[in-house]
Design a protein around this nucleic acid. Sequence first.
DNA 1: CACTCACGTGGATACGTTTTCAAGCATCTC
DNA 2: GAGATGCTTGAAAACGTATCCACGTGAGTG
Lengths: 369, 369
Amino acid sequence: MDKRATIKDVAEAAGVGVATVSRVLSGGSASPHTRERVLAVAAQLDYRPSALGRNLRQRRTGGMGLLVPDLTDTFYAQLAEGVLACARSAGEPVLLGSTGGDPEQEAELIGMLLEQSVDRLIAVPSGDEETWAPAIRAGMTVVFADHLPAPPSPVSYSGPFSGPSSGPSSGDDPAVRSVHDLMLLDGLSAAPRSRPLDAPSVVADDRAGIRTAVRYLRGLGHKRIAFLGGPGHDRRAAAFGEAVGAPVDEELVVFGTGSRDSAYAAASGLFQSRPDLSAVVAGGNVLGEAAVLAARELDLRVPRDVSLVMYDDVPWAELCSPPLTVIAQPGRDMGYRAAELVLRSGARKPRSVVLPTELIIRGSCGPHR
Amino acid sequence: MDKRATIKDVAEAAGVGVATVSRVLSGGSASPHTRERVLAVAAQLDYRPSALGRNLRQRRTGGMGLLVPDLTDTFYAQLAEGVLACARSAGEPVLLGSTGGDPEQEAELIGMLLEQSVDRLIAVPSGDEETWAPAIRAGMTVVFADHLPAPPSPVSYSGPFSGPSSGPSSGDDPAVRSVHDLMLLDGLSAAPRSRPLDAPSVVADDRAGIRTAVRYLRGLGHKRIAFLGGPGHDRRAAAFGEAVGAPVDEELVVFGTGSRDSAYAAASGLFQSRPDLSAVVAGGNVLGEAAVLAARELDLRVPRDVSLVMYDDVPWAELCSPPLTVIAQPGRDMGYRAAELVLRSGARKPRSVVLPTELIIRGSCGPHR
DNA sequence: CACTCACGTGGATACGTTTTCAAGCATCTC
DNA sequence: GAGATGCTTGAAAACGTATCCACGTGAGTG
């Protein structure tokens, strides 16, 4: 149980100063002779520089933070895997936090990262811009993934998940919002909002993805198409409204709050209140899951009675019967790209990266009857 | 963009020494008057102690490391959520690493954690005891979750995942091992192995879970039952061998290497080489997924042609048709308990926690025909 | 030859905290 | 009243590193 060697030990053993050792190991200049000698001694002593000393000296912790709403959501798991892959190849640590979709927990986790002096952060945001302003102001390099934080609004929605329970039960908060609000939210808003938080982001081309899906459903003859969304799906909902055209039936755009229970409740409520709908676009895989479950419970057959397109391609989409037609977005790539962005702190970097989506047609959509 | 206040600023502003500030904030003794004053000033300056200084002083990074094979495996995601929940309530950071099931990457990640001076680690191990001995020797408090590292063996198996690709394709490595080896491995081995690595662990009651499943299948009349396992499922395989009884058909115990491709290949190979089997126990959700896919591809109907029980209850198990009968293990609890264990470093702690499993009967098992 | 310049080098410092140590002071005990 | 005892307190010493700066040496230039 011997203590680890420090830079001082190496310096003494090599007969040089600590500064020289530090330089050699940090890639600074040194004479070939000295360099060789130092490296040999370092290897001999199995010296590994302590991140502690370095961090304190540079007043910043290396690596990056990663904040996602819920790892149980396969898409976020894919995204996290991408981030981890990039971080691993860069030899950088990743501090992970799961917000549960709750802005309050998110703020807490940001505070913790600040305390750790982590100044690089990848986030799938749950809170709005107000939640994120402090982090940016504190000098953090933040890259948003999947979507940007919503602009602050007095009637802020986006509550926390109701809990980790998974079985579908009749929730109480279908939380219907009109697509009109959403389009206002997305476009030029009436309220003079603060300058829109300049942080780079890596997102999927929601607009194109949704549009393709809606067109596909239209091509199958569907007229009454519903959108089932969750937290962070504002852009998708807006794109949906845009794709279906002007006379948007507001009842056909429904939101859950992020938990599986809430998603199930929203889906179930949608099917029950609008038996006339013939197709549903689910804004994420948790909502797609809920839609399948709710449809089955209500004896609606897919795709005979109702067609379903789900955002996110996940392994189990193929397991459903019929296999689910999905809008695939490259979750892993998204994470990897976000990590690359947050690491290339110095260079001029793109404001925003938009990744392509792909409609993968399986068996959950049929012609309108 | 003002710099954060340091303990020195607080001390000066409060007219006391830095030691006093440190004591007050760390819960040490101080006169009520001083305490109040310091706290007021600290709040006033929005002072938050820097983890950097503390870490260096105590020569250890707070928080804990978490190493899992693959977040895309829903079970590990659940486990991670449990760890994160506990860590969050303790205000401790979590450094996450994904090993991809590769002992080499695992060793690299351990090295990185060592460099970060993280001395608490929760791991779902991929490497064997040899991989883990250095970490333990280095003074890390390691808690294993889900299963223990395998004892070192010359014919070590457990290769890395083949990659992040997800679609099933015909792999090349069904990697069949005999159950005889496994039982030897689990019981008293012939080779004199080094003392078995005393680290606490949190695992599910694999033996009971598997036994219950096998008995259930037996009760339905099944005679030829196969086990489809993956890395880390040695205990389950051994329990399977034990449950089916002495004359174990070695061809009926098959292993994949962890990737979805390999799992699919193993499942497909199993079904093709042994058309006489009537039931399969999948050792994990990725293998269950593969079994469903492979069965479908080979036109085997579940449960008409083959019955299936899957280890792990995951949300999408209910989405399959028929819904999958599963052996549920409390993934989230497992993570939470492991985190509790690794945090209670001082107290006398249990060597090992065993969590109960539950057979949840849905629709993927039918009577033998 | 004198001067400059470039470069390799090591001493010293600072990063922000916890912890040790001794000093100061009030109270208690004999 | 003198000594002992307890409590509060602040100065100082680490912890391991990166970096500033000054020094010395050798080569190049006038």
